[in-house]
Design a protein around this nucleic acid. Sequence first.
DNA 1: GTCTATAATCAGATAGAC
DNA 2: GTCTATCTGATTATAGAC
Lengths: 197, 197
Amino acid sequence: MASPRRMGSPEAKNRAALLDAAEQIMLEEGYPAASSRRVAEKAGLKHQLVHYYFHGMDELFTAAFRRSAERGLRVQAEALKSAQPLWALWRWHTNSLNAPLWTEYIAMANHRKGLRAEISYYSKRFREEQRWIVDRALRSYGVDPDELPAVAAIVLLTSISRVLVMEEELGVPDGHAETVAIVERYLTKLEGEPTVG
Amino acid sequence: MASPRRMGSPEAKNRAALLDAAEQIMLEEGYPAASSRRVAEKAGLKHQLVHYYFHGMDELFTAAFRRSAERGLRVQAEALKSAQPLWALWRWHTNSLNAPLWTEYIAMANHRKGLRAEISYYSKRFREEQRWIVDRALRSYGVDPDELPAVAAIVLLTSISRVLVMEEELGVPDGHAETVAIVERYLTKLEGEPTVG
DNA sequence: GTCTATAATCAGATAGAC
DNA sequence: GTCTATCTGATTATAGAC
């Protein structure tokens, strides 16, 4: 049963402004601070407009995540075109500025099941896109797929980088330099020194 | 300037009950649901008692984290006595039931600076305790510390296991079996097959 | 699309009696 | 230690005018 309430179009400028504001607050103060009123205020709008553009906060957060994930997929697709896809994957994840945002979404997903399904769906899409490109690359480097399957290489690279970024933010850099050295030594063995472009 | 308010002793039974209740709610519904009123209710107490035992929610969360971290240090110390410390570390982190709780605390730390310092402090203590034991083990296995420093081995093991647990919860198990196989193959090469005890 | 106005609920915190 | 009572402010959400 559809809601009788009116609803703003997805293309509206103010809708995007609300999503921007939500993400900014989530980053600066954590997702519980991203209330309808504060989000609207940061967007320079009245708080009631949140309910005009979204059925509720759940829908707003889901929309924000989806938009951010779609952007990420486009950026990743571009990065994976590199002649050194492993380096590209590694660099992208270790530099990624929106890692903190993902942390917020994952924490939020613990009690917002709609968001949880969304994160699960996009995580799989990210991994699928990486998979065949990395698989092709590893084979061309002469890596035995039984020794190191592409999915495993991906999980390893992304896990390590994700935790490094997270700990860096927390101010716990112990062992990071040594770990990065090991990973990058291996990447160099496979793909050579990273090129700038 | 100290608060003039009265305060319950840290040994009080109800204080512990409040901490238990807070952790349980955090796990089930996420940390924003752990309000003073809901925590007290779950502990079977009146909500005003939260303010008798703690100066505020910040203090409650910090106390809950510290208690949980101290417990973790004791469990880890026991685990690291194993003849196979790397296996122990790996198994402990991949099975750890309180990984979700840590996710909550880390998300919370983004806007509660007291908690942030606490997490940083304990993360370092965990890593220090692991360090010399893993270092001694790796040397006894004949591993070159320049090739694989103990800190790096620790960061690698804990990063990978942490992300595996997190993704498992999200329902994204893709590539996990392959990754676990690679890690465990390496652990077996160093420490042999894991013993049950 | 955007506004005013309003309802219902919940939060953290404190004073003071018992 | 625990209670009643109370204060103050924030939150989501809706109806209906403009």
